[in-house]
């Protein structure tokens, strides 16, 4: 009896979450898909030669329908779409994960400062966040990328802005509920500096909503990044970014619609996997929320 109690106690939040998550079929399917995609994206660098197989043109093989030789067919200049999709996962995943990470760090810092100190700092940070929130994120990104010029780094920065506002809001809301708790008061009483309290006590206690938001935001950001590439201001050609591939296929919609269909399906599958995982994580981290 005693040992069971000890076992229950010793189970950390992470293992408890994992135990609940394992029961959610959708989340596990999403997780497996993402793991496979990440491995494939990493491996594609070793399997394919970028200059000849990814961006190299091969006109004799142009516009071939999906077959056993070319699983996803070839595009208007004879490039293997399957190879480009795998290689393109590097762009889509790293851009979205990267911009969410930048947004996460800035958002958490700003949100924690706003929530912890309140007053003027809170007013300034949150009013700016409100304004950015009112403008659709795609529009913010369009403005930033067109002003700074289209490059992968600028795209990353542009997409991180809306992620940052979202994290700032979540962190602020969580911090405000935690701020009055006794353990914060005691940390204060033993003379811990504010930044250390925020870092050691406040942020770890509002991690759950943030983790869920990270998963869901990576999905939205993949769509946003591909949208910008579709508009022609994302990753510059001829890089195999998914949105850019889709955009290139527009001129062949009548004769070779698969050039458009396949990248879209891949984007959808990836975002779907992230959404399934995010929903699963939300249920696993906060069982009360489950509906």
């Amino acid at each position: 009896m005693e040992t069971t109690i000890e076992k229950t106690k010793s189970r950390s939040l992470a293992s408890e979450t994992w135990r609940r998550l394992k029961k959610n079929k959708g989340a596990i399917i999403g997780l497996i898909f993402l793991v496979v995609l990440v491995i494939a994206a990493l491996a594609s660098g070793f399997i394919y030669d970028y200059d000849t197989q990814i961006i190299g043109q091969n006109i004799s093989q142009r516009l071939q329908r999906p077959s056993s030789e070319f699983w996803f067919g070839t595009d208007q200049v004879g490039r293997d779409i399957f190879a480009r999709i795998l290689y393109g996962a590097r762009y889509s995943l790293s851009i979205s994960a990267g911009s969410v990470l930048i947004g996460l760090i800035t958002g958490i810092i700003l949100g924690a400062v706003a929530g912890f100190y309140g007053g003027l700092a809170d007013d300034i940070i949150m009013r700016i966040a409100d304004v950015l929130y009112a403008i659709p994120n795609i529009m913010i990104a369009v403005v930033i990328v067109s002003l700074l010029g289209s490059s992968t780094i600028n795209l990353l920065l542009a997409l991180s802005v809306s992620a940052a506002t979202s994290f700032a809001r979540i962190t602020r809301a969580s911090v405000m509920t935690i701020r009055g708790q006794e353990y914060i008061e005691s940390a204060n009483a033993i003379g811990m500096p504010n930044w250390k309290i925020i870092l050691k006590h406040v942020i770890p206690n509002c991690l759950s909503p943030i983790i869920v938001q990270v998963t869901l935001l990576i999905g939205t950001t993949i769509i946003a990044a591909s949208s910008l590439s579709f508009l022609g201001i994302g990753v510059p050609a001829p890089a195999p970014e998914w949105g850019a591939m889709l955009s290139e296929g527009r001129d062949f919609m009548r004769s070779a619609s698969y050039i458009c269909i396949i990248p879209g399906l891949v984007i959808m599958a990836t975002v779907l996997a992230l959404n399934l995982l995010g929903d699963g994580l939300r249920d696993a981290l906060d069982p009360k929320m489950k509906t």
Binding site: G219, I223, F230, C260, N275
Partner: peptide, 10 residues
Amino acid sequence: SMPNFWLGLM
């Protein structure tokens, strides 16, 4: 999960 512009194209 679907990109809006892709749905439009489809």
